[in-house]
């Protein structure tokens, strides 16, 4: 036990986005607290902090997991990918690009988690259908309810939809023009 009866901090070796960080953490530190407050990678969001919302989704050894429920100390020896690790050599990933061009965000709070879940999906399934996309993103909640654009973005990222392709529902302008 350390001062104030608290367990002492321990040296924890985290591999985040391919880079090794040796950080001193209390055993109770979650992976989310470690990446946000110790490493300063604030792209992973702290939403509900109890496993409901998916805003803190990171990839651990390529699998989508919730950083808010993972102990940082248990992530040692595993490859952690946060949203900051998706872009390579200053170029955004196809998923990030698709979310951008599709306007698949409103407030943006759920977006990191959404994009990491989508990245994990596309890594194991190149051309997922709409149902598979919905299943893969089921653990990520969007308070703005902008789901349609998000699902479209995953289709764009997987080359199954062009950006110009609109929803089945005609726009207000198109409806006015048709009258």
């Amino acid at each position: 036990m350390g001062v104030f009866g608290r367990p002492e901090k321990q040296l924890v070796a985290l591999t985040v986005n391919g880079e090794r960080h040796d950080v001193a953490l209390e055993p109770r530190a979650t992976l989310l607290e470690a990446v946000r407050y110790t490493l300063g990678l604030t792209g992973s969001k702290q939403g509900c902090d109890k496993g409901d919302c998916g805003a803190c989704t990171v990839l651990i050894d390529g699998k989508p997991m919730l950083a808010c429920l993972s102990l940082a100390i248990e992530a040692q020896g595993r490859a952690v990918t946060t949203i900051e690790g998706l872009a390579k050599d200053g170029k955004v990933s196809p998923v990030q690009d698709a979310f951008d061009v599709c306007g698949a965000l409103q407030c943006g709070f759920c977006q990191s988690g959404m994009m990491l879940s989508a990245t994990a999906l596309l890594a194991k399934c190149e051309k997922p259908n709409r149902e598979q996309i919905k299943d893969a993103l089921a653990g990520n909640l969007c308070r703005c309810t902008g789901y349609t654009q998000i699902l479209n973005a995953v289709e764009v990222a997987s080359g199954q939809r062009s950006v110009a392709e609109r929803d089945e529902r005609p726009t207000t302008q198109a409806q006015a023009a048709a009258k």
């Binding site: 919730l66 879940s117 089921a138």
Partner: peptide, 9 residues
Amino acid sequence: IAGPQLREM
């Protein structure tokens, strides 16, 4: 059970 992330964990 739950969502994809929780099933992995």
